[in-house]
Computed example of a mutant assay.
Amino acid sequence: MSDLVGLAEKEILRKEIMQLCSTAGEAGCSTQVLVAAVGKLGLDASRMEKELYYLQEKKMIRKERVENKRLGICRDIYFITAEGMDYLDGNGSDVPGIGV
């Protein structure tokens, strides 16, 4: 039974990540923002890197690295893709592993 609960948690986390990126629009979401937001929702944010990688491989989100070497700032910013938007709108193909 715990495998089923773990699978459901992963799917919920993935869908929340996509919805957050969709809400952020052109500004995108940094990893730090995503971790804070899913933490507020009561989800386990310790899996964030794995789930971000998974969603990138499925082409649901894309990552851009933004940095300012002069200030020593480096952030990964995530954006929802057109395919990800279609999925959230219910127009895309059904992707196993995302949402419940």
Rank of each mutant, 00 (worst) to 15 (best):
R14D: 02
L20T: 00
L55T: 04
K15A: 07
Y54L: 00
P96K: 15
I17F: 05
G42P: 12
A8D: 09
M48S: 06
V38C: 04
V33C: 04
Q19V: 06
A8L: 14
G92L: 05
I80N: 00
Q19R: 14
K59W: 08
Y78H: 08
F79S: 06
Q56T: 03
S30Q: 04
D44P: 12
Y78K: 02
R70Y: 13
S46Q: 11
Y78A: 07
V38Q: 06
G28Y: 01
I77P: 08
K15Y: 07
K15Q: 10
G42Q: 04
M60S: 03
T31V: 06
G28V: 01
K50Y: 09
L41K: 11
A27W: 11
V95Q: 12
F79P: 09
Y78V: 02
G25I: 00
G72E: 08
Y87A: 04
K58S: 01
L43Q: 06
I17G: 00
G92D: 10
A45Q: 07
L13V: 13
M18K: 02
A27V: 05
S22D: 12
M60P: 06
D76L: 11
G99W: 04
D44L: 11
C29H: 02
Y53E: 13
I12M: 08
R75I: 03
I98V: 09
G90K: 05
C29S: 05
D89Y: 13
E51P: 03
M60L: 15
G90E: 08
C29T: 01
I98T: 02
G99F: 06
M85S: 10
V66P: 13
Q56S: 07
V95F: 08
E57N: 15
D94T: 08
D94Y: 07
V5F: 11
C21L: 00
